[in-house]
Design a binder for these strands. Structure first.
Length: 567
DNA sequence: GCCGTTTTCGGCCCGACTGTTTTCAGTCG
């Protein structure tokens, strides 16, 4: 069983206990354990086999015993007992914004409603507003959120889809002897969410490939299947579409699978204009291309990377030889948004820095939360100073690697920052972010953020729009006005690589580039493992057509130092 | 639930906002 799956069980346990009104600290301990398990680099099974679970901070005797039960039997009795009392659909209700354990409990007990669908029906019939503590506004909000959720229905975060696709691809190579397996579709274009996983497989024995895939533990059901392809429902709720081709046709099939539809449509038109329709993939005849470069060159185009294939002007740019020179992960020289155990991170400054060195970075910025973010143990000016002293001492024998003193300072609801200016002035990297009062009106929020953009001591604005993909909308914000201010002041904007944020998104980042704004691609990592999420931010940058010069942390340390000084 | 060299028991968690109230409970970060 994977770490994330064990973690998930404790999350669910915590949610159910919260519904029952159990002790806050017990629930927090389960949540904490889930977070620790998800962040473990080693497999929890390995640690368990060595009998060293309790050596992990945050895992005590009780939770270790539960992990033991999970890994031995594949289930947890306590969880199953709770699920008999409270249907899991009630947990879905609890996941709606504004609905916590108390309200979900009231809805379940008073209306007998135990799924999102039933709740929508009850709300439409006006039965929710009569419940204690709820009124018309709550009822409307519930309906709005459910509708929004239905609209985005069925889309999975890119990171989840990539993980599953990677697992299945490895399996097909190892077990079914497929020579090549790759995910096409929106995964290959690094779109932020994914509908279905599209796998392209090279093999001379499609029957065997499909048989073996069917036997994979993640595959729950065959939706359809023929000689060359199949569609399968997975246990993670995502559908996997598989196409098996012979090796000669692999590149063509991958190209077609990658899309996007709009991009292929544009190419098709171009091909017809050149009288190339019979030669062009998508026509009834399939041609074996050696690689995608050949496909593009038969249309008179240079290679277009998958991230650009969205019909957002890339074909025209290619025709005019104006495609951007995209950078990649290897160009990233440091991470400028890192949390540690000084606030709500899991690991020490030393460990995060050591990992950054292993990655070949030249620098990182330690940017823990500021004081008002109590839940994250935000740093008071006094503790911040202490942390910065500590960092300076670590830098003393640093042989070329540099840790920047930093802070992620809250932009307070009334504007202004959550840390005295004289301290910010001495801090090498200041990120300013919104973490409270998300529901302010558009003008207030815009003015609030612009106040930070204009602050001379602020280097970077963190996760500008505050969205959490599939969970929380952007706050009301006039992005255009903020971009204008950032361009005027030379303030850097963050591309947050956290797969549920990706904020700026590709569209906003491209608008920022057009205005000459510089950006930083950062992970916002709260533990070692999440420092690995940089590729997701890099993908946003690529989808936004950014080049090296647009992104400050492609600069080496000496150059970055100059950029930061200039502000 | 976890943790611990001042403690094996008692601390761990806080303030703002919202919608519902008519003085506050629930939710959120």
């Amino acid at each position: 069983m994977r770490n994330i799956e064990v973690a998930w069980i404790f999350h669910e346990l915590a949610d159910l206990l919260e519904l029952k009104g159990e002790d806050f600290f017990k629930i927090r301990a389960y949540r904490n354990a889930a977070r620790i398990l998800a962040g473990l680099e080693e497999s929890v099974e390995e640690i368990w086999k060595r009998g060293e679970l309790v050596k992990t901070p945050g895992i005590g005797r009780n939770i270790a015993a539960k992990i033991d039960e999970i890994l031995t039997t594949g289930r947890l009795r306590k969880l199953e007992d709770l699920l008999r009392e409270i249907p899991s659909g009630v947990l879905d209700i609890m996941s709606l914004p504004g609905i916590g354990p108390k309200r979900a409990g009231i809805i379940f007990k008073n209306l007998g409603v135990s799924s999102i669908g039933e709740l929508a029906k009850a709300a439409r019939e006006g039965r929710v507003k009569s419940l204690p503590g709820m009124g018309g506004k709550t009822e409307n909000a519930i309906l709005r959120y459910i509708e929004a959720r239905e609209n985005s229905c069925g889309r999975t975060l890119l990171v989840t889809a990539r993980e599953l696709a990677g697992e299945l691809a490895g399996y097909l190579k190892d077990v079914a002897g497929a020579t090549r397996v790759e995910a096409g579709g929106s995964i290959r274009r690094w779109q932020e969410t994914v509908g279905d996983i599209d796998l392209v497989v090279a093999s001379d024995d499609p029957g065997k490939v499909l048989d073996i895939l069917e036997s994979h533990p993640r595959i729950k059901e065959v939706i359809e299947r023929d000689g060359q392809s199949g569609s399968f429902q997975t246990g993670w709720g995502i559908v996997v579409d598989v196409e098996v081709v012979s090796g000669d046709f692999f590149e063509t099939a991958l190209f077609l699978s990658t899309g996007s539809k709009a991009h292929l449509g544009r190419l098709r038109k171009l091909g017809q204009g050149q009288g190339l329709s019979a030669d062009f993939p998508g026509s009834p005849v399939r041609f074996a291309y050696k690689n995608e470069t050949d496909i593009y060159s038969c249309l008179g185009l240079p290679y277009i990377p998958p991230e650009l294939r969205e019909d957002r002007g890339e074909v025209e740019a290619a025709l005019g030889n104006r495609l951007p020179e995209l950078f990649d992960l290897r160009d990233i020289k440091g991470d400028l948004h890192i949390h540690t155990d000084w606030s709500d991170g899991l690991h020490s400054v030393e460990r995060m820095a050591a990992r950054a060195r292993e990655k070949g970075y030249q620098y990182i910025a330690i940017t823990d939360h500021s004081q008002s973010l109590k839940i994250a143990r935000g740093l008071s000016p006094k503790r911040l100073k202490k942390q910065h002293e500590h960092i300076r001492s670590l830098n003393e024998n640093s042989d070329g690697f540099y840790i920047l003193t930093g802070i992620e300072v809250d932009i307070l609801p009334k504007g202004g920052l959550d840390c005295p200016e004289e301290i910010l002035k001495e801090t090498e990297l200041v990120i300013a972010s919104v973490h409270s009062a998300f529901k302010q009106d558009r003008d207030t929020m815009t003015a609030r953020i612009i106040s930070a953009v204009e602050n001379r001591n602020v280097d970077i604005i963190g996760h500008l729009t505050g969205r959490l993909i599939g969970q929380r909308d952007e706050y009301a914000l006039d992005v255009e006005r903020v971009l204008e201010a950032a361009a005027d002041c030379g303030t850097i904007l963050e591309i947050n690589s956290s797969p549920d944020r990706l904020d700026l998104n590709d569209v906003n980042a491209r608008r920022a580039k057009e205005r000459g704004i510089r950006m930083a691609v950062s992970t916002d990592a709260h533990d070692l493992k999440r420092m690995d999420e940089m590729p997701y931010g890099v993908a946003v940058a690529r989808r936004a057509w950014l080049e090296r010069e647009n992104v400050v942390n492609t600069a080496g340390w000496e150059e970055l130092r100059k950029i930061l000084k200039k502000k």
